[in-house]
């Protein structure tokens, strides 16, 4: 079952720790979505880049359970050049502590990458989300290095047009809206075959379950 409530997340954390050592799970962060973890082999890569490719900046809901969990720690969640306003009340309702958010806004394409690199390698962030405009392969490599250096997951939201570009990212996903949520296809996963798919049921009523009704 998919989860957003904090209790569920805690339970999930315990599960993830239980798998530690068995798999290479210590290099992975559970996404908080069971179906997604299954196709990702356990979760998001921990100190590496992941790319989420879509038509129109889609895919944020896939990350939210992870962000909710990471925001319990002391480090920043950096969002570099988000395409819209992250709507704070909705994030809070999904368990994200918004005071951990570090937004980098109104910056040029080059500044985005510079900021993302700084954030990734600083060691001060528990995750870095980037919406770059265009990225050269060399720049991607720099970011990948920075992620490793700062032991920090970097998630790049990119256009579907870049599907055919090569990438040093440990994980590449293609995301499309579907009637039942978001359809995810694994294009590349380090140490495994691509091609696995799943439907992550974002937007189902469960997504809105959350807290008791207290108007």
């Amino acid at each position: 079952m998919q989860v957003v409530s904090l209790d569920e997340l805690k339970r999930h954390g315990a599960l993830w720790q239980g798998r530690r050592g068995l798999l290479t799970a210590d290099r992975l962060l559970s996404s908080g979505w069971t179906v997604l973890d299954d196709v990702l082999g356990g979760g998001w890569p921990r100190a590496s880049l992941a790319e989420v490719l879509s038509d129109a900046h889609q895919g944020l809901p896939l990350i939210l359970p992870l962000l909710a969990r990471l925001s319990a720690g002391p480090r920043w969640l950096a969002w570099v050049a988000p395409p819209y306003v992250p709507y704070a009340p909705a994030l809070v309702a999904r368990g994200v502590r918004v005071e951990r958010l570090l937004l980098v806004r109104d910056v040029s394409a080059g500044q985005r990458l510079w900021a993302a690199e700084q954030a990734l390698k600083s060691g001060a962030c528990s995750a870095v989300l980037v919406w770059p405009e265009q990225v050269q392969a060399a720049q991607l490599r720099r970011l990948q290095l920075a992620a490793e250096q700062g032991d920090c997951p970097g998630i790049l939201f990119r256009s579907l047009r870049t599907v055919r570009q090569g990438s040093p990212a440990a994980l590449r996903l293609r995301v499309r809206p579907s009637p039942a949520g978001l359809a995810v296809e694994v294009l590349k996963r380090r140490g495994a075959w691509g091609g696995a798919t799943c439907i992550v049921p974002v937007g189902r009523d469960e997504d809105r379950g959350g807290p008791a009704l207290v108007p």
Partner: peptide
């Protein structure tokens, strides 16, 4: 919705609020 959030200094401490946005989206248009 327009008044339910605000930019601030990063890390500025906040009064904890009971979540209201359960049926509201994570992205808001400016």
């Amino acid at each position: 919705p327009e008044c339910a959030w605000q930019f601030c200094q990063p890390g500025e401490s906040v009064v904890p609020l009971s979540p209201r946005g359960v049926s509201q989206p994570p992205w808001l248009l400016p």
